[in-house]
Design a binder for these strands. Structure first.
Ligand SMILES: [Zn+2]
Ligand SMILES: [Zn+2]
Ligand SMILES: [Zn+2]
Ligand SMILES: [Zn+2]
Lengths: 129, 129
DNA sequence: TAGCAAGCGTTATATTGTAACACAATAACC
DNA sequence: GGTTATTGTGTTACAATATAACGCTTGCTA
């Protein structure tokens, strides 16, 4: 049972859920000025919590955040993101096989991964036409 | 035939090559003050060029840069990095199989990746003991 | 020799992220 | 209940990362 969110956490999550793409911390802040959010630390603290609970993801190559839209995300070993450079769309994918390949590499090399980042930057199907 | 590097590009590459781990743009700048490097744009422009030619890599999850140490790096479809949170070591790996899995996903989903980021954050073999 | 592309040096600014502090709400415990 | 530990809050100030824009130089090359 996941803990209830605080007001700020709920606001940030709500903003990310409504957005149709990744948002920077500062654009979240701007969106929430009217709701009483006033300074970066408030946003960053909420983001940190939401990341820890897996409700959102951080896109490292964009310095941006996105709400998790995959219902079984938690069950995946790794989550990948395909980011369209043209329309900005982000597709979250599971990559079970990739996950296994990475595990193999880890086992072979004695590396224990705590977090895995997989991000593709390119052009999505609709944008290719 | 790769073009010769300019002075600034050579300086930046040299700094990254000597380093035993990833460096931030600003620490490169600090290292090169005595060599005449004075402001961020000079470093960033050199980094951009070196990235384009594949001589260095950018670690997205660290906002840092590292010299390529894999002799056949260019022949790999994707390059992965395992970053130890304890000692800071970075291991560059090839991931041919992973590359193929990603290609499969791309084909299935009509996505054309131009750049692929794979970064593992965790603990390396020596640090685990 | 004129034009062009790439790089350079510089200043200023934009963007992203934290440290630190005092206080408030919440949860845990006896 | 009352005490205490944990977590979150609001705030100010600042650090770290990255880019815009300008005018100039250099080396090709047509
Ligand atoms: Zn997810
Ligand atoms: Zn697209
Ligand atoms: Zn490489
Ligand atoms: Zn290590």
């Amino acid at each position: 049972m996941g803990k209830a969110l605080t007001k700020n956490q709920a606001l940030v999550l709500d903003t990310l859920s409504r957005a149709d793409g990744p948002l920077s911390a500062y654009s979240i802040l701007d969106d929430l000025r009217d709701e009483g959010m006033q300074a970066p630390p408030q946003v960053y603290r909420a983001l940190e919590k939401l990341l820890k609970t897996g409700l959102i993801h951080r896109l490292e190559s964009l310095n941006a955040y996105i709400a998790c839209r995959d219902p079984d995300c938690v069950s995946h070993t790794v989550t990948g993101f395909a980011i369209c450079e043209t329309c900005g769309d982000v597709i979250e994918f599971a990559g079970e096989k990739i996950s296994r390949q990475l595990k193999d590499w880890e086992d072979d090399n004695g590396f224990l991964a705590e977090k895995t980042t997989i991000e593709l930057r390119g052009i999505c199907k609709p944008c290719k036409g």
